[in-house]
Structure formats: structure tokens, C-alpha cells
Write a protein that binds this DNA or RNA. Structure first.
Lengths: 200, 200
DNA sequence: AGCATTAGTTAATCTACCTTAACTTTTTCT
DNA sequence: AGAAAAAGTTAAGGTAGATTAACTAATGCT
């Protein structure tokens, strides 16, 4: 089985230069997997030992509250890393569920492999420092938007920021990312349509 | 001026072991400063070249939207790092303002010093990788809470998670962190008081 | 291909939280 | 210490977004 690591290698190499031996050591730790629609990569309550990298299709990480309501934390299409990072880092049972939205390919890396890589190839520290830095600033922007924008503005931001995600997700899933009901998103879209007609 | 670097050294050493030379190199890049109440460490629109580390007192990072409403992004009491990280990392004019809530001491580190440190002492990559990892997971938890909890539940979480911040901040500032009005927080607190009386 | 499930729409009613405003209490600054 | 500013409280009225429900359209599954 010749797995194509080009995408993940290109992703890492955006931040740090690795030599072939280092890359080989990295890729030797990856497991290539596929998931059918609705397959779970991680289930709330289970140990969080792996981090995932999307190759094709789309994954969704979500939280289910005590009343059963889902909040989508992130979508991961090709070239996105995803896991329940809090529980991964702190070795706790997952709070999030990660599910394939559609038939997907992805790579899997265990926590112990990653920790090994940090120690044997310190450049991975730099690489992941930058990944975490980006992840942090992205979440911080989301907090700002959640605090300061209306649902409609958040929806428009989402369309603008994540056009590559749109073809993979339903409105219901977008609504649960924005923190609103699908019914209300439907209303927002109706209003948008009327505004765009009025423009003409 | 003999500045006390014990606190920041202890903070770094939680994640990585440094030798005295490395620590000296680090501390040589720090500037010790004090700020009076309402002094700005960073002003929206200005270059974001510095990261701050609280020693005493309390700092507040907030966003002001187009209507003039403030959203508090974070508080930084002793031993917290703070800056407008998105703009710091991407070398953009600040979106956030960082202000001293009360008379405070803090340390300042420039972006270029930090980048120099990453290159000359790679252990700092590890150290900041862990700091960013923690910052990311903290923000992600906040996103989950903002999406899935009511204002009252968020308030109770805040009290529980950040008891060390409470003595430094007003209710108005807490409200702007939670994304509600001070009037509504006042109502929540009134309801809480009545519940705690009913308990007896 | 066709049935069952799920997604999306629309509308009426409801509620968590906002706005405004008038007031009291606390804090800050000189 | 005392005036001025800011923080906090209370209450009436308003609005963004939730809930429920009934329906239509699209999609997935055998």
C-alpha cells in the first residue's frame, strides 16, 4: 500500500524545513485510514490518544450537552489537523465526538508517537508551536466574533472565511457551528436572499 | 535596578528545564515596567510588537466593536502572558486594547527578541509550544461554553475557574467577558442570592 | 427504484437577554 | 474630605433568537 504523504509533508514544510530522514521518521508513525459517512474517529467518553489529519472528505468535531444539543467545534476538510485537543493534551476521556460527514481519508498519529517526535526531532516542536499558535489565534478570533457579532454577521463571516468547507456541510451543521438553530439560519438566509434581490 | 525574575523563570521552568546561561539570555531581553490604572500597554490600531507577562495587579485585553461596545477577551493577573496574539504573530496593527485595570507591574518581550530566542535556544520552541497548546485548549473550552451554556451557567463557571481574578475586576468587566450586559449580570446575581437563601 | 430518513422552510408563540432610564452606592481623584 | 465619576441596582418595555409544529424537498440506503 503506497500511501501518499505529499499533502501532510507540504503542510509541515510550510513552517519548518525537514530533511528526508526526518520526514521518513514522521511518516512512519502515521496510519492511513478511511471512514464511511457517520463513522466515528473519536467518541465522547473514550480515551483521546490520537490526532487526525484530513486528506479528503470532511470531518466534524462536536460537543453534545446534557440536553442532547450539539455544538460543532470545528470542521476538518483536507489539510486540517483535528482532535479533542484539551483531552488529548491532558490525557482525559474525550468531551468531543469526531465523525466523518462523508466518506473520508485521513491520517492518524498517536500521542506517544508525537511526543517521541518532539524529543528525537526538535524541529517538530517549532512546527507544532506554529500550528498551535495559529490554532490559538483562530479560536480567539472566534471568541471575539461570538461576543461581538449577531448571528447574521457570524454567518456571513463563516461563508467568507471557509468557502472550502461549504460544499461538505449541511445548513444544520453550520447552524450548530454558529450557535443558532437551523430554523433561525433558514430565516437569515431568506432575509439575505431578499436583500440581494433588493440590490438589483 | 534589581528586577525579580523568579516568577517568570518558575513559569517557564514548569514546561522545560533551562540552564542558567539560557535563563540569563532570556531575562536580558525582558523589560520591567509598571502601569498606573487605565494606562494602555497596547492600543488598537498601533503596531503589535510586544508580549506581556503580568507580575502584579491586573491587565485586561478587550475588543471595541463599531458601535463602541467592549468585549473582554482576557484578564491577565500575575503569571499570565497576554498580547493581541493574532496581530502579534501576523505583524498587524492591534485589534485589541490592553489596559491596566489597576496599578500593575509587568514584563515586556518584543517579537524580534522572542524570534531570536527561538533560533538560539530551541528549548524555547518547546516551552512556547506548550504555552500555545494550553492557550488553544483554553480558548476552545471557552467557545464550547459560549455555544452551549446560558449566561448564568457561564457566570458560575467563571467564578469557579478564575477565583484569583475576581478580586481585581468589576462586574461590568466580568459581564463584558461573558458577553452580556452589566444589567443582566446584576439580575443573575440577584437570582443567585435568592436561590442561596432558598437553600437554607 | 422506491421507501425512509433527514434536511430545509415557514409561521406562530415564547423567552433569554437587551435597552433605556432613574436611582443608589461605591470609588476615584484633587 | 468632598465633588465627580463610575459601578451597581431595579424595573418597564423591546428584540434577537428559540421552540414547536406542520409541511415540502432532498438524500441515503437496500
Amino acid at each position: 500500500m503506497a500511501v501518499d504523504f505529499q499533502a501532510i509533508i507540504a503542510n509541515l514544510s510550510r513552517h519548518t524545513e525537514f530533511n528526508p530522514a526526518e520526514l521518513a521518521q514522521f511518516t512512519s508513525q502515521l496510519t492511513w485510514r478511511q471512514a464511511a459517512r457517520r463513522d466515528c474517529l473519536l467518541r465522547a467518553g473514550q480515551p483521546t490518544r490520537k490526532i487526525f489529519y484530513g486528506l479528503s472528505g470532511a470531518l466534524r468535531a462536536f460537543y453534545v450537552d446534557k440536553t442532547g444539543r450539539e455544538s460543532t467545534i470545528m470542521f476538518a476538510v483536507a489539510d486540517w489537523w483535528v482532535t479533542d485537543m484539551y483531552c488529548f493534551v491532558n490525557a482525559q476521556p474525550a468531551m468531543l465526538t469526531i465523525e466523518a460527514i462523508e466518506y473520508s481519508h485521513y491520517l492518524e498519529l498517536t500521542k506517544s508517537s508525537l511526543e517521541q517526535l518532539y524529543l528525537t526531532v526538535p524541529k517538530f516542536e517549532r512546527c507544532f508551536r506554529i500550528l498551535f499558535q495559529n490554532a490559538y489565534t483562530r479560536e480567539q478570533l472566534r471568541v471575539i466574533e461570538n461576543l461581538s457579532l449577531t448571528a447574521e454577521e457570524r454567518y456571513l463571516q463563516f461563508l467568507k472565511k471557509y468557502p472550502q468547507i461549504l460544499p461538505h456541510v449541511t445548513q444544520k451543521q453550520i447552524a450548530s457551528y454558529l450557535g443558532i438553530t437551523p430554523e433561525f439560519l433558514s430565516l437569515i438566509r431568506k432575509n439575505q436572499r431578499q436583500k440581494s434581490i433588493a440590490q438589483k
